[in-house]
């Protein structure tokens, strides 16, 4: 399998590590915030454990650890293994970035 790193170009999949679904966003957790502990816990429960088992195109995190050490977001068809797009995580380079999920 070949993955096109947006920084390095097409590379063999052994240079990459798969993490999983890129859809869940880590809930913001304000220590003194108004949200009830139960709601925060439910949100984290969803974030940590609940995943769709997608047959088709899915957004996933991949890490180019054997290369430029960038975290990437790939759209991949889980049925055909075809990569539709690969883009960099918001903080991969040094550009100013806003916090994901905001």
């Amino acid at each position: 399998m070949r993955i096109a790193c947006p920084f390095c170009g097409e590379r063999e999949n052994g240079e990459f590590t798969y993490l999983g679904d890129a859809s869940p966003k880590r809930p913001n957790f304000a220590v003194d915030g108004g949200e009830s502990p139960e709601r925060v816990e439910d949100a984290f429960y969803d974030y940590v454990y609940l995943r769709d088992n997608v047959a088709g195109v899915m957004r996933e995190y991949w890490y180019h650890g054997g290369g430029c050490r960038s975290w990437l977001v790939a759209e991949r068809n889980t049925v055909t293994h075809e990569f539709i797009s690969v883009t960099a995580a918001p903080g991969a380079g040094a550009a100013s970035a806003v916090r994901a999920g905001e």
Partner: peptide, 19 residues
């Protein structure tokens, strides 16, 4: 060592890119 480095990069690039 390796997994923690990967985890820290995940925190830096994905979770807290504003830092």
């Amino acid at each position: 060592a390796g997994p923690v480095m990967q985890h820290l990069e995940f925190c830096r690039q994905v979770l807290f890119p504003e830092l």
